[in-house]
């Protein structure tokens, strides 16, 4: 899974968001490192919707413009959980090898 996709799913993990909301959430989650652009975001959303990982939660009209909120589907939640566990295991293994003395020290 690409990092942008992972971060988009993460942004939706605790509630629905609209496009601009996802961009700000992703920037926050990545501590300012990942600045999603609209083209990347909507290509990813298009694909995630087609794959059934996200769905449209609701639509609102704000200042005459359509605002669409997206949410994770049960499939999306499962895929994100799986990917997060995989990354976590990899990161733990890396830290353990870098700091053998700390093995088992921190959770």
């Amino acid at each position: 899974m690409q990092e942008a996709t992972f971060l988009i799913l993460t942004a939706l993990a605790d509630g629905s968001q609209h496009g601009y909301g996802i961009i700000t959430e992703v920037r926050q989650i990545s501590e300012g490192r990942v600045k999603l652009r609209a083209g990347t975001l909507y290509t990813a959303l298009d694909r995630l919707r087609a794959d059934g990982l996200i769905g449209v939660d609701r639509e609102e009209i704000v200042e005459g413009r359509l605002r669409r909120y997206y949410r994770l589907t049960p499939d999306g939640t499962a895929v994100l959980a799986e990917e997060a566990a995989r990354l976590h295991a990899n990161a733990t293994a890396a830290l353990r090898r870098l700091n053998p003395g700390l093995a088992g020290g921190t959770a």
Binding site: Y20, R37, A38, G39, T40, Y42, R65
Partner: peptide, 25 residues
Amino acid sequence: EILAVLLATAEDGQTRVGLAEAWDL
């Protein structure tokens, strides 16, 4: 929808599409 996001992320007073932005689109 994507247009609203583009306008929301545009700089104040921006009149032209930036190169990186255009490439991404």
